[in-house]
Amino acid sequence: MAEDLVLDTAIRDWVLIPLSVVMVLIGVLRYFVSKLMRSDQTPDVKIVKEGQLIIRARNLRAAANFIPAKSFRARKNYYSNEENGLLHVPKGQAQNPQAQMFSDPNMAMDMMKKNLSMIIPQTLTFAWVNFFFSGFVAAKIPFPLTQRFRGMLQNGIDLSTVDVSYVSSRSWYFLNLFGLRGLFSLILGEENATDDTQRMMQMSGFGFDPTKSLGAEKDNLDIVQHDWALPKFEQRAEAVLKKLVS
């Protein structure tokens, strides 16, 4: 590169390091705040019941080959028989999940809390970075990029002659935002790593329709090919024992 920029060490001491440290600390703070705000709502009995039922059916499906055909048939009948099987949901009883969500204010409240604990710190840090550090060239990434990335990496600097690999402080903030996720999962445990993405997923599936999953589980159970594994185990045991003896 012909025109190497010389960056002042003061930028490192007063922009780059503080910004990164603050991002880490805010992540930690957010984790603990959201932990504090988490309310233990007592779940609805019906929903818990259905959840447990699905788990039981799933266990049966996973362990189908370890029980005799007759036992399997009996259990399958118990779950998915058309008249009073546990997984069989009568038509018209399906509750509208949307309506259910609105009828339970606690649920909406919880959702909002989670949302807020995510959005508020981000907005605040972004405003902070914007206010104090706008227009700095804060860092230089050690690999070349094409012009396409200029908007992404030099957010806040309107110079077209600066090499693209120089990063503005605002973009450094974004880089931190994404890159620190891994670090958080190490220092705060798995729970936090799943925070953003997983929680978003959970949220969208919040008023998830239990009847639908019951139906799906029923279909899954219906197509299980039963193949009792135990007869083969005798041969296997024989082989193992033979190996031991010889």
Partner: peptide
Amino acid sequence: LGGLMSFVLFWTFAYDMVHIF
């Protein structure tokens, strides 16, 4: 791929600390 972002961040960070400034 999940680690790539963390790698880039810490790479940039250490590189800047040591070589740029």
